[in-house]
């Protein structure tokens, strides 16, 4: 009915958060240049990791929106949703609350898994670099 609206809304929020994080990272990188903070570890920026989530959410929502247009559940005229037009708003909201929320939760969980794995790899790489330095 309109389940894609839930991950779509999450995509809007995470995109705004990504922009804020990017701005903060830019500010922090200036500090690195000025020499206030020195760190040798190279890690993937959190904004880049948030970008993975954005791509999954935007891409998934867009393709699902296309499927809804295909099935006639989204229409080009107001109120844009067939369920609302036919007075099935309650059913639509129920579907958004179950399938829609489930979609958002599963995609976000997959992203959390990706972030945990990449952080573990980066941590191991940093430890190996330190060990090599100590040996040298």
């Amino acid at each position: 009915m309109a389940c894609f609206l839930v991950p779509g809304t999450e995509a809007i929020v995470t995109t705004i958060v990504t922009q804020a994080v990017k701005a903060k990272e830019k500010k922090d990188s200036k500090k690195y240049i000025e020499g206030e903070v020195h760190e040798n570890t190279v890690v993937t920026k959190f904004s880049t990791k948030l970008g993975w989530l954005n791509k999954m959410l935007w891409g998934g929502s867009a393709l699902l929106a296309f499927e809804h247009i295909w099935h006639g559940e989204v229409i080009p005229v107001f109120p844009f949703l067939t369920a609302v037009k036919e007075g099935e708003t309650l059913g639509m909201l129920k579907e958004m609350g179950t399938a829609g929320v489930g979609m958002a939760v599963l995609v976000t969980s997959a992203w959390v898994g990706m972030v945990l794995v990449s952080s573990a790899i980066e941590k191991r790489k940093a430890e190996n670099t330190e060990e090599n330095k100590a040996e040298a």
Binding site: P7, M56, G59, G60, S61, L63, A110
Partner: peptide, 21 residues
């Protein structure tokens, strides 16, 4: 290509939830 893969994975996960329901 990472963007393309993530887009398809996002849609796959969403359709997977749809399939469960």
């Amino acid at each position: 290509l990472g963007t393309l893969a993530l887009m398809y994975w996002g849609a796959s996960l969403m359709w997977f939830v749809d399939a469960i329901f």
